[in-house]
Amino acid sequence: MSGRWSRWIHRWASPPYFYRASRPWGRVFAVVSFVAIAIGLYGGLWLAPPDFQQGNGFRIIYVHVPSAWMSLFIFVFLAVCGLIGLIWRIKLAHAMASAAAPIGAAFTAITLVTGSLWAKPMWGTFWVWDARLTSELILFFLYLGVIALSRSFENQQTGDRAAAILAIVGAVDVPIIHYSVDWWQTLHQGAIFRGNPFDGHLHTTVAPSMLWPLLVMWLGFMCYFGALVLWRARSEILLRQLDTGWAREAVGAP
């Protein structure tokens, strides 16, 4: 790794520095997230036209699809944190993963619940055991497994490593969920983005007037995750390092 990157990473990996420096970033993410979700909801619920076949019922897409993207993104985030924590022994990476896992589990739960509520009026059933729904449900259990594993050992370090390995191995479910609708015959419809973004053949199945609020909602959800994970990670490292001078100073303990 080149010197500049290495210095940058090591500075941010220091808990006291992270604790101080992440606070303004958390606020920026929180403000952007609030504005984006407000615009996205207004665009999705009022400005976007009704769908040709689902009428107004399609509008649950503005929560369901960004949540589903977040559920996949956050699991990849856990796996990357796990790799960094295991290889470079950066404790902050484990604290970040620990902070992110419940947020990811919540987005997965939102995906499953909104999907179920959407499926009943449109498909005619709350649940089917097709490859897409089943692999997303497995992702939810993987999140619960990561959360449980990291808290199952007396020694935090052992828990962190066990959870990191499950996150890395479990990340194989992410491409399976993404490609499930192409690899197998499912009741769930195909992806709304198709093609390869790198060769210029990316196209979408959603009309532009309906698509932009979806992308704004996704930006809002990403920033919401950014704000929440920094906030939670700050509490997490305080808790983990309460026996150190800087942490006691930060919480105002003598």
């Binding site: 040709f52 992806a191 009309a207």
Partner: peptide, 10 residues
């Protein structure tokens, strides 16, 4: 059960 396509438009 209905299996609709991935298209959303007015």
């Amino acid at each position: 059960l209905a299996k609709h396509g991935p298209g959303y438009h007015p």
